[in-house]
């Protein structure tokens, strides 16, 4: 298990080469990434989420998310028997440090719902941006141009899911980028990388070999707030009707 100094020296060039290939290029000039060939989305498998908070911590580490704001967070739902209209929901510090334990004899059902930007195909946030500082890329990721955003917060108001915030230091809109700097290099998002149970899976809807197609064929999936008709692209497997 331990790598000795000798091992490391042998491995070093190989590691460096692999790392170089990971860092290769930007989406524009990298020969291996063409925006029009992808349409990114995410699959969230509710029965697999254990509420450990790994995704929240990973997101904050990867994306320098300011304290008290969240690009992704986890909610814990507690639905008592038939009372679906009144779920008790908590998300202490976005679920970053996990959730308090629940005793076995507790009534009702519990489950965790990870949330993030839905990268909507018809997103209300990009619709209302007055200057074109937020947009959906040709590969289906909703991004914020922080050099152009004037910080009016209209997009924050327009998002039905509460996924946006104004960065307190940068004073511009901020949100999940679906780790655009990773997925364009062939990596998965930080949250998916750190999820220990595979409850979150990055998916490319334009890739016919992506396992999401097989999954969608055999499972009942749902998006959040479908009545908002936002074309949300984060798909939830086994989502309870009480989730908002």
């Amino acid at each position: 298990m331990n790598i000795t100094r000798r091992h490391m020296l042998i491995l070093l060039p190989a590691a460096a080469m692999a790392w170089e290939s990971v860092l290769a290029g930007t989406p524009e000039d990298a020969p291996n990434y063409t925006m029009s060939e992808h349409w990114w989305s995410m699959l969230i498998d509710i029965p697999r989420c254990i509420g450990c908070g790994n995704c929240v911590r990973a997101c904050q580490a990867e994306n320098d998310v300011p304290d008290g704001f969240f690009r992704t967070w986890i909610e814990r739902y507690h639905v008592d028997d038939w009372n679906m209209a009144n779920p008790q929901v908590i998300s202490p510090d976005g679920g970053k440090e996990g959730f308090p334990s629940v005793a076995e004899d507790d009534k009702g059902k519990y489950f965790f719902v990870p949330k993030l930007c839905n990268h909507c195909a018809d997103s209300p946030c990009t619709q209302v941006c007055p200057v074109g500082a937020t947009f959906i890329t040709p590969d289906g990721v909703v991004l914020v141009d922080q050099k152009y955003c004037m910080g009016c917060a209209y997009c924050v108001q327009a998002c039905p899911y509460g996924c946006r915030y104004i960065h307190p230091q940068k004073r511009v809109a901020d949100k999940c980028t679906l780790c655009y700097h990773r997925i364009t290099k062939g990596l998965t998002t930080a949250c998916c990388e750190a999820c220990p149970t595979g409850a979150r899976q990055l998916a490319d809807l334009k890739n016919p070999n992506d396992p999401i197609h097989a999954f969608l064929k055999t499972h009942s999936v749902q998006v959040l707030k479908p009545q908002m008709a936002t074309g949300a692209k984060v798909f939830y497997n086994d989502l309870d009707g009480s989730v908002r």
């Binding site: 929901v89 949330k115 915030y165």
Partner: peptide, 12 residues
């Protein structure tokens, strides 16, 4: 009650 975590501060 419960707010989405980004909703706690008012933006306008």
């Amino acid at each position: 009650g419960f707010m989405y975590p980004n909703e706690i501060s008012l933006y306008w």
